Structures are given as C-alpha cells and as structure tokens.
Amino acid sequence: MSEVRIAAEQRSTFGKGAARKIRRAAKVPAVLYGHGIEPKHLTLPGHEVLLALRTPNVLIRLHGEGVDELALPKGVQRDPIKGFVEHVDLLLVKRGEKVTVEIPVTTIGDVNSEGILDLQMTSVAVEAEATHIPTGVDVDIEGLQVGTAITAGELKLPKGATLIADPEAVILQVSAKQAEAPAEGEGAEGEGAEGESAEAAE
C-alpha cells in the first residue's frame, strides 16, 4: 500500500472552541497515539484528509515541524449533514509491525438465477503488516446455488493477511427468490367468475 503524505502542525489549544476555529480555517483537528507515546494533538489540512480517507485503511505519512510518523486512521468523526471530516484519531505504526484492520468484501459474478444474494458482512477483520495492508478480499459468487453459504474461514485472503474474525461467521448466503404475491383483487375476481359459472349451470 502506498503512503499518502500529509503536512501536520502540532497544536497546544484544545476544546470545542479551538476545534471550531480550526475547522473554520478548512483544517481538521487530530490526535496521534500509540506505542506508549504521549498523544500528539495535530492540525491537518481538511481537503487532503478528505481525499486520503477515500482509501480504506490508508497509510498516512505525517510530516512537519517535530512530526515525522506513519499512522493509520482509527476513528473518524464526520458532520452528519455535510459529510466533512470533523476529527481524526490516528494510530502510530512502525514498519514491519502487525495491525488489525477491517478490509472490504467484494463479490465477483452473479448467483444462480433462481437465487438472490444476501451479503451479511461487507468487511472482515484481518491482521496484516502495517505497510502492506490489503485493499480488500474478493469472493467469486458466479453460479452459486440456493442454500449456499460462505463463511469467513472460507475466504481466500490476500498474501500476508491472517483472519481475525470468527471463521464460522457467515459472510454471504444465497436465498431463494420469493414468489410474487398476486395483485390485489385477483383472487376475488376469480371467485366471482366461478360463482357466475355455477349460477349459469343451475
């Protein structure tokens, strides 16, 4: 996984008022923690952060005065209406160390025409080297029959990734399509026609 370089400024002001001031300047307050260090309070450029977070488990190279670290986003707060990033928690990581992350599950193909796909888990927890986190795991569902289920333990994980999730957890299953219910009034009309035929016979 490639690194995204983001300039970071250390900050000494905290609280809601300070955070609002940072956001008005189109920046994002962040906290860097991990490896037993004292948490570092940072200010990051908002646009660059927003672009970086489009990649799951993006590896960020923080650089600036007194800052030169690798980090993974572990907590992101967004504005519920506008969607912009309000705050980021960053986990300090070192090259070669293992981290636990959620990677997305992507299906390839289509199930049998008699079935419908029920994707129960859109991501799965794995352990991987911090600088080689897989972008996701693909699952081939082409032609799967009704009643088929695939568990986490059956996933073909990318090289270097180890499953952390429960291997018995169901990732997806193929259910039977439900028969379409008759349109309202169809049953009543049929009964009326039968009644009229009986009366005519009499």
Rank of each mutant, 00 (worst) to 15 (best):
S2I: 12
S2W: 02
E3R: 07
V4F: 10
A7E: 15
A7M: 09
E9L: 14
E9A: 13
E9P: 02
R11P: 12
S12W: 08
G15H: 04
K16N: 13
G17K: 14
A19T: 03
I22S: 10
K27E: 15
P29I: 06
L32T: 00
L32F: 05
G34E: 08
G34D: 06
H35G: 09
H35C: 12
G36K: 02
I37G: 04
E38W: 01
P39F: 09
K40H: 07
H41V: 00
T43Y: 04
L44M: 06
P45R: 06
P45H: 07
H47G: 03
H47Y: 10
R54W: 11
T55I: 15
P56I: 00
N57K: 05
V58S: 10
I60F: 02
I60Q: 06
H63N: 11
G64N: 10
E65H: 11
G66Q: 12
V67K: 02
E69P: 00
L70Y: 14
L72Y: 02
K74L: 07
G75W: 04
G75L: 05
V76H: 11
Q77F: 04
Q77D: 15
P80V: 06
I81A: 05
K82T: 04
K82Q: 13
F84W: 09
V85E: 10
V85W: 11
V85K: 03
E86P: 01
E86M: 13
V88T: 01
L90D: 06
L91N: 00
K94G: 00
R95K: 12
R95S: 05
G96I: 06
G96W: 02
E97K: 03
K98D: 01
K98M: 14
T100A: 02
T106D: 04
T106P: 01
I108D: 05
I108R: 12
G109P: 08
D110Q: 14
N112R: 11
S113D: 08
I116N: 03
M121C: 09
M121L: 15
T122P: 02
T122F: 11
S123M: 00
V124S: 06
E127I: 00
A128P: 12
E129H: 03
E129C: 00
A130G: 07
T131R: 00
T131N: 04
I133Y: 03
P134G: 05
P134K: 09
G136W: 05
V137F: 09
V137G: 08
V139N: 06
I141V: 15
E142V: 06
Q145S: 14
Q145K: 15
V146E: 09
V146G: 07
T148E: 09
I150V: 15
I150S: 03
T151I: 07
A152Q: 09
E154I: 07
E154R: 04
L155F: 07
L157I: 07
L157F: 04
L157E: 05
P158Q: 09
K159P: 04
A161K: 04
A161C: 03
T162L: 11
L163T: 08
I164D: 01
A165H: 12
D166K: 05
P167S: 00
A169H: 03
A169C: 05
V170T: 15
S175Q: 15
Q178W: 01
Q178I: 11
Q178D: 10
Q178N: 08
A179R: 13
A179N: 09
A179Y: 01
E184A: 15
G187W: 14
E189K: 14
G190M: 10
E194T: 08
G195L: 15
S197Y: 10
E199D: 14
A200E: 15
A200R: 14
A200S: 12
